Computed example of a mutant assay.
Amino acid sequence: MTPTAIHPKITPIYQTSVFKFDDLDAVQQYFDEPGSRYLYSRNGNPNSDELAAAVNQWEGGAGALATGSGMAAIFAALMTYCQAGDHVLCAADIYGGSAALLNLELSRLGISVSYVPFEELYDLNSHVQPGTKLLLCETMSNPLLRVVNLRAIAEECHRHGVKLVVDNTFATPVITKPLAHGANLVLHSVTKYLAGHSDVTAGAVVAGTPEDAARLRQIGTVFGLTLSPMESWLSVRGMKTLRLRVAAHSYNAQQVAEFLEAHPAVEAVYYPGLPTHPQHVLATGQGHGLFSGMLSFRLPDDAAVVNRFMQRSQRFPFAPSLAGVDSSCSHPLYTSHRALTDEQRADLGITVGLVRLSVGIEPVEELLADLAHALS
């Protein structure tokens, strides 16, 4: 059977680092007609391009880049707008890995950073500097699930001539599409909900304009951020069930949050789906009634108490990542937010008693029974 007679329903895995050319004319065509064919997988591969196109379609963007991790996606987003001498604003409620990149590495590139408390995000007058290029924030913050009013923050950023970069990992485009609210770039740790099965490490950045999309592509090629074919293929496969999974995650997390809120051993619960959450009304409108599968809750600030919970739980193993179909728990103080200063952690309320749950799609009654046992 000739290759032209093969019509697979699913894109094959192009596990190749290089593509063949017949002659010099074919090579010239590659450079004269961008996108007409492939040359080298760092520059582009059918699988990584398919993933980028899928994320771009979900977010309603003008083009996207698939990267080797969520951290690579953050780096690509920052490099799209920044160079030596520039200044970056970042929401104080931010993933610890993002803070590590900003604190430890950007300064070496001559880029300064300062943090904006959650309550001041909608009035940046005292934070914007002459060289401020962008503000980085999360749709739903990690780990306290504070929800940002995207339209309001976009208007404030653009009033100052500042780009808005949004990490949409917790929400996913099923719940919220930041570009539609005025964001300039949207990024994801594809490792999490988009791929969804805890078997991939990947990232993606989506641009709101063709110019930014072209810049992202250049950054991905020059810095070697491109995702491998196998990881791209697995991510695309995972995304085929994204809508169903996010709905199931959200349903289960709502039940878990309500159970924890009523439990006498729990001091506080942080989940936007609860009416007691400070941004519940905003999250309801901005998220179309879905609130993600992520939540945090507070136990007494006693490591022994936290350890007993983790040791007794069978359905929420201590696994410091999130968003897989199987539930897990994490501990921000000991894992994701170690890179923050003691002062930053104290300001955010990240103490030894704070536990983060990634609620999976298992039968919810099994999850509730496990939590009742672990907390008893």
Rank of each mutant, 00 (worst) to 15 (best):
V352F: 09
Y193K: 13
P210H: 03
R245T: 08
T241G: 06
A247Y: 14
A323W: 00
A303T: 15
H288E: 10
G161R: 01
G85A: 08
D347H: 14
M79C: 08
W58F: 15
D22G: 15
A52M: 03
A99M: 14
A180M: 07
A62M: 11
N103R: 14
Q57K: 15
H181W: 13
A26N: 11
D23V: 11
E211K: 09
A369V: 12
V206N: 02
A76H: 06
N184H: 07
F318I: 13
I6V: 05
A339I: 05
S107A: 13
A64H: 03
V147E: 05
V206K: 08
L260Q: 04
P363E: 01
L367P: 00
L282I: 11
R217I: 12
A204L: 04
L274M: 03
V190S: 03
L89W: 05
A268Y: 13
T276R: 05
L354P: 00
N142K: 14
D199T: 05
D49C: 14
H373I: 13
L290Y: 09
F318Y: 12
N252T: 03
A257K: 11
K163G: 09
A369G: 06
H249C: 06
S296K: 09
V147T: 08
I111E: 03
K240D: 10
G353L: 04
G96K: 13
A204Y: 07
T176D: 05
T11M: 14
N45F: 07
L299K: 02
L144W: 04
I361W: 02
V166F: 02
R37V: 12
A183K: 09
S17I: 14
F291Q: 03
L185E: 10
Q286D: 07
S250C: 08
L375G: 02
A183D: 01
F309W: 01
R108D: 12
S189V: 05
M239K: 06
D23E: 06
L194C: 11
D370W: 00
